[in-house]
């Protein structure tokens, strides 16, 4: 079995299994905690505000723009860039088709590659911010840095593989697939789980405030 076969086959399969089982276990563990129903009459529509908050938190309130506007835009751009590259790079679509049986139109390499480059630069800036900003220095642990590395690896290896740089294409592709496996395995055990947890956490704040008639 070549490295590429291993990366495509058992490594990816196990990574997917660990990802799904781990994420389900963590999410179920959280949702299994109970919560009491409020007994006071509500002032507003809690449920509606809950759903609204899931969407509205993509943009901070205008009053915060001066303080966090730049960081927010960079963070939004990073997330959008990452999702764009994952979903619209032609070879990725082929991979998803094999996995899910679904496909969609891709975007030309001449667009995807610069987007991937910008995304990587944004990630590097996030890393620099994390090691320099006093608040982030206080909050960050090894897990936060590991997350940045684990997230950067698929981007770096993917760009190198498609540009046929550094190593043989097959080897680079294998490394790319292995880095994706690492990413998947890392999700349930790290803050990357926020890709799922942002839903219940935003919704819950929205519900709590909405119940009191307050916009979250």
């Amino acid at each position: 079995m070549t490295l590429l076969d291993f990366a495509r086959g058992p490594a990816m399969q196990w990574a997917l299994i660990i990802f799904l089982a781990g994420a389900t276990f963590r999410l179920t563990g959280i949702l299994l905690f109970g919560r009491k129903k409020p007994l006071s009459p509500a002032r507003g529509n809690a449920r509606l505000e809950g759903y609204k908050t899931i969407v509205s938190r993509f943009m901070p309130n205008a009053v915060f723009h001066r303080r966090i506007g730049t960081v927010h835009i960079m963070s939004l751009a990073w997330h959008m860039g990452f999702i764009f590259v994952v979903l619209f790079f032609q070879p990725h679509i082929v991979f998803f088709e094999g996995l899910l049986g679904l496909s969609w139109p891709g975007v030309a390499n001449s667009i995807v590659m610069p987007v991937a480059g910008i995304t990587l630069v944004l990630l590097a800036l996030a890393f620099l911010r994390r090691i320099n900003h006093p608040v982030l220095k206080l909050l960050s642990g090894a897990g936060d840095f590991a997350t940045i590395i684990v997230t950067a690896l698929p981007l770096v290896t993917g760009m190198l593989a498609s540009a046929h740089l550094v190593l043989k294409y097959e080897t680079m592709l294998a490394l790319h697939l292995l880095s994706i496996s690492l990413f998947l395995v890392w999700v349930p055990f790290s803050k990357l789980m926020h890709v799922v947890l942002f839903l219940p956490s935003r919704k819950r704040l929205g519900e709590k405030l909405g119940y009191k008639g307050v916009k979250a």
Partner: peptide, 29 residues
């Protein structure tokens, strides 16, 4: 601890933005 606590404590991404809303951090950095 209840479901809210669990969601809250599991979901934090340690972005530090909360500091930018706190009266005490804003005045002192």
């Amino acid at each position: 601890a209840n479901r809210d606590t669990a969601i809250n404590l599991e979901a934090c991404v340690r972005c530090g933005l909360c500091a930018e809303a706190c009266q005490f951090y804003i005045a002192s950095e």
